[in-house]
Amino acid sequence: MIPFLDLKAHYQSIKGEIDGAVLSVLASGQYILGEEVARLEQEFADYCDVKHAIAVNTGTSALHLSLLAAGVGPGDEVITVPFTFVATVSAICYTGARPVFVDVEPVTLTMDAAQIEAKITPRTKAIIPVHIYGQMADMDAVKAVADHYRIPVIEDACQAHGARYKGARAGSIGTSGCFSFYPGKNLGACGEGGIVVTNNDDQAKTMRMLRDWGQEQRYHHLLKGFNYRMDAIQGAILRIKLRHLEGWTEARRTHGRRYTSLLAGSGHLRTPVEAAERRHVYHVYAIRSRDRDGLQRVLTAEGIQSGLHYPIPVHLQKAHADLGHQAGDFPVSEAAAGEVLSLPIYPEMPAWHVDQVAAALEYAYVS
């Protein structure tokens, strides 16, 4: 079998380092926040070329706190895309604000900045572009509209650790950037985790309080906050993994290029496109085919795991029926949802597995 993702192999590749870091935390008796988390924050801020990083318990919490720190609340509107994991929209709803959607571009599947201005109202308080699958949105175009209307941009970089746009790291261009450390991410914890990065001193201070019950100091609660703290063990593990991230990223990019080369001759599917002046980090290698379900059945029969990211856009999810959307409202997102198929890709994946997956896809069209 060829797995979609192999977290066991991932762990084995750095087992000694991880085990030592975990045992050190256990011996310290400091299990929530603390020195390991503080060091992770500094190291991740340096990695992203920003002043501040605020570690939290999930990527969803990172988005939630970023919105609150930007002043988003009940009755406000936040512009984002429907082709994303539901957490992007859930975080908006947590604040009491209303999600307002624009469609995605047909090639990169990131926010179509040309549609933003038509959706701006006096209630618009933030814009959240989603860096889908490991590639950043067209941030110049998004920022041009946002800056004109003085609206903060919050980057959903939960799938884009290490991605770049014209040399700038994901998370460093907007008012803030949000990352998930869910285990399957390019930089993943051994459990849950997330982080916010920002250059805004005031917002950083607010988010640090909000993640820890609104405390400025122990038992002095200035804000109505949350229990969004990161565990020290996850902080220690992520510090180890961060040191390997660039190597893992280049391995993913090598696999991505190999897939693209091997599948280039197929007229029945489309491969991902790395847009000019962007560094795609291939959190997901998603091909597109009108016979997506048939291809997935072929791969399954050949013992090859695959994934669907994402088969139902958020505006058509029953949980968000209250937004009043229907099929046809966002045609590019809807078309993508019916065509995308994610192939196995992870740093430890042997090159011959890439060859075998590509061969199985070609076989599907000649058999």
Rank of each mutant, 00 (worst) to 15 (best):
K166H: 03
K166T: 02
A168L: 11
R169N: 13
A170Y: 02
G171R: 15
G171K: 15
S172N: 09
S172T: 04
I173Y: 10
T175S: 10
S176N: 11
S176Y: 04
G177R: 13
G177V: 03
G177D: 03
F179H: 05
S180L: 04
S180K: 08
P183H: 06
G184M: 12
G184P: 05
G184H: 14
N186A: 14
N186I: 13
G188S: 12
A189H: 00
G193Q: 08
G194E: 02
I195M: 12
V196E: 14
V196N: 09
V197E: 06
V197M: 09
T198L: 12
N200E: 07
D201S: 15
D202C: 06
D202L: 12
Q203K: 14
Q203C: 11
K205C: 05
T206D: 01
M209Y: 01
M209V: 01
L210C: 03
R211W: 00
D212L: 04
D212F: 07
W213H: 10
R218L: 09
R218G: 03
Y219R: 13
Y219F: 10
H220T: 04
H221L: 07
L222E: 12
L223N: 08
K224R: 03
F226W: 12
F226R: 04
N227F: 07
N227Q: 12
R229A: 05
R229D: 05
M230R: 00
M230H: 05
D231K: 02
D231F: 15
I233E: 08
I233A: 06
I233L: 12
A236I: 02
I237W: 00
I237A: 01
R239N: 03
L242T: 06
R243L: 04
R243D: 10
H244C: 09
H244S: 07
L245E: 08
G247A: 11
G247E: 15
W248G: 07
W248K: 01
W248R: 01
T249I: 14
E250K: 12
R253C: 06
T254F: 01
G256F: 03
G256D: 11
R257M: 04
R258L: 10
T260I: 11
S261H: 06
S261W: 00
L262D: 11
L263A: 15
S266P: 06
H268F: 06
H268D: 15
R270L: 10
T271V: 14
V273L: 03
E274I: 05
E274G: 12
